[in-house]
Amino acid sequence: LAHGAGGRATRTLVEAVFLEAFRNPMLEPLGDGAVAGELAFTTDCYVVTPLFFPGGDIGDLAVNGTVNDLAMCGARPAYLSAGFILEEGFPIDDLRRIVASMAAAARAAGVAVVTGDTKVVQKGKADGCYVTTAGVGTVDPELRLGASAARPGDAVLVSGPIGDHGVTVLLARGGFDIEADLTSDTAPLHGLTARLLDTCPGRVRCLRDATRGGVATVLNEIAEASEVAVVIDEDAVPVRPAVRGTCELLGIDPLYSACEGRMVAVVDRDAADAALAALRSHPLGTGSTVIGRVADDPPGLVLLRTSFGGTRIVDVLVGDPLPRIC
């Protein structure tokens, strides 16, 4: 099960099974999507418990997630496909609700769902409803975005407070009555990325949406792929008080908690101010901040400067987080 948590176990699985079998130059970077000429293409499967949670449901998650994967390639999303796997007996009203929120999300994102498929499996062979979406979009072929493009000196930004989606879903899953003012941050980010790319042409190195495994995992991928260090400031990482409180209660580090409407951007140091201003000028990026910078040493590691001036290693989790303290 740990293979889905978004950490090293997922990566090992992906590399061992899929990359091995499918190996080709477009797949190799294991980015959020693939770019061929002016075309960007991506696909994602959505499995979430519960299906409905404060701030969203599996439907808008499936649209926004795929839109965001295209956006992170620097693309303008155009068309989506949608596939459904339904467990026998899944309430039709729930399905209607999911599809309606997909439609609303697609409308809001300015994309069209143009094809799809549905399968029903026996009761017990699936958990309610799974959704798969694929998306195509157009992209400037000159863009060179990627996890391996970060260079020492670059600034590292996030587009707003982190961790909302992950703790919201976890709390909604628990079935316990813990009160917290939490909603998922699910949102389409292509407007935000477009504004950033327009403002700082050629100065953006890398864009990643911080989904499973959170900001920590994304930063580790960048550090490893670019063979650089990423050094972030504990005090600079934006976390909403309700999220911080719930994370504290649950013993979760917000850095590892998933976001569905936040991205990490690595930009040339000289463009950091302009990038920040561009992001903040967009409604989905008002809470953007610079959280750290790229350094040359130690390559492949993410370090956190703590409030006390210490330096903690922010490692990729191998599986589900378990305490390490003896």
């Binding site: 976890l170 628990g174 316990f176 009555d177 813990i178 209660l249 649950l250 979760i252 305490p323």
Partner: peptide
Amino acid sequence: ERWKDVLSLARGGVGSP
């Protein structure tokens, strides 16, 4: 302030190895 929430966590098993 947190007693009930923590009991609830313990019983629910989420985040409580």
